[in-house]
Design a protein around this nucleic acid. Structure first.
Length: 103
RNA sequence: CAAAGAAGAUAGAAUGUCUGCCUGACCACAAAAUUUUGUGGUCAGGAGGAAAGUCCGAACACCAGAGGGCAGGAUACUUCCUAACGGGAAGUCCCGGCAACGGGGAGCAAGCUCCACAGAAACAGACUUCCUGACCACUAAAUUAAAAUCUGUGAAUUUCGAUUUAGUGGUCAGGUAAAGGUGAAAAGGUGGUGUAAGAGACCACCAGAUUCCGGUGUGAAUCGGGGUGCUUGGAAUGCCUUAUCCGGUGCAAUGCCAAGUAGGAGAGCUAGAAUCGGCCCGGUUCAAUUGGCUCUCGGGUAGGCAGCUUGAACCGGUCAUUUUUUGAACUCGGAUGAGUAUAGCAAUAUCCGGUUUAGACAAAUAGACAUUGAAUUGCUUAUUAGGCAAUUUACAGAAUUCGGCUUAUUAUCUUCUUUGACAA
RNA sequence: CGGGAUGUAGCGCAGUUCGGUCAGCGCGUUCGGUUCGGGACCGAAAGGUCGGAAGUUCAAAUCUUCUCAUCCCGA
């Protein structure tokens, strides 16, 4: 697993994807021919100040680390945080991401 | 005890379990290959007082590092601190507050502009009023010339004039700015002298301004005395004036390596073009013809290394120097005080020793759970505390680096000061 | 890292140049009229301390300083 870093890669996912929307996150998935698995995390300023944004990012990363069995090769995934994600509990985030990733 | 004011310190909840991140050093293995890369392990280190806002000041780097002028910007009581500052300390004047304390500070006596409504007028000229003079008109009185009349010749009456005086009105010339009641603000205030009427025109007291002399202070300033009748409205956080300072761009600066595209299109200039940046002068560089220069568009790459963290950092000691202050001693003096040498504090420089010391690059420094601690609320036992439950556990995340400022904010604690009440 | 704009009634805006006349306009809201009733229309009313704090001034939405929030632009 690796993280998406460049702006160009994000744009390619934005232009061609399948969209799943939950209460706290929006997940965009794109199929790619390679056997790679890449994830990008987007947290905008609407979520809160820098401390809250970093916390959301760390929690998403922790979810990916603890649920490695969900990694599916051949996909690019972008996780976009909604403003409500800044005040959410860990259990809510875990439950929702489990649902969204398994689709 | 209550109500206030000012300054400062500390901490940035703790422990455990599981799962993880970044940097450095060392070891082992593997690959290429002679120095790198990858994997694993061990050890060490890993956010803040504001890291924030980006409001000031610098360091550092580049702009082909002559300069001058104009424009523009910033600052504005004084002295000191500082690498520098628009920051800080102490002082000084004004304003607010009973006070502790807080806020503010060049120039309106260089020029221009503005001062709504009201008011005669908003800063200097007019207007009304007041006073004087001349002329005109009218009224009254006095004197008088002429004519007519008779109530019968008068100190008579009437008519029409003249002169003088007084008053009223008007016009012109002059004096004056005291009065005009409005306004936030009206040209020093009160009383007198004086005058045709008035006026600092003059005088006394009061308030202020300015200037001179002397004392104190490094200075802003302040104290005392005198002169000038000087009386000047407010607004420069209005234009502006004066003084001082300021080149621009910013670590996405900048340098190197690797990879890779193109040598295309359009426009302008051509003896001029570019250049220190808004403008001018000047200087510099390039340029002598299918060439040169500039700009725009299009195409390509956006990987790595350096910059990148030890710094105008902090603490202690020795010796030297300087300044300031305080207390004691001695001498002089009636006293305030002055002098002498000494000691202490502080600052500065050198030397010595020690402490600390994140460097990431879509960006680490953590995620989850449990227990304990703290705060609030509710219930309960029952007493000034305990138990149970729920909720909360501040503000907030380095991004080239420092010095400040400002803003956000939790808990605990300390010191100083003022006012009031009560008690001794 | 640098540059700029905005904040005024529930919503969208004017007024800021050069301080006073004035805090106003449209939509919306409320009340009344009109209609058999509703809409449209007509008439009237309420609703603001001009993002916040300090200062200058007789007087501040307007001028000055600080500050908060939102938005935009460039490398």
């Amino acid at each position: 697993m690796r993280f998406i870093t460049s702006k160009r890669e994000y744009q390619s996912v934005y232009e061609d994807n399948t969209k799943y929307e939950g209460n706290l996150f929006i997940v965009l998935k794109k199929k790619i021919p390679d056997d790679l698995f890449a994830v990008g995390i987007v947290v905008s300023k609407k979520v809160g100040k820098a401390v809250n944004r970093n916390k959301v990012k760390r929690r998403v990363k922790a979810f990916l680390r603890e649920n490695a069995y969900m990694h599916k090769s051949g996909k690019k995934i972008v996780v976009i945080a909604k403003p409500e994600a800044g005040n959410a509990e860990w259990k809510e985030i875990e439950k929702e991401l489990t649902v969204l990733f398994s689709k």
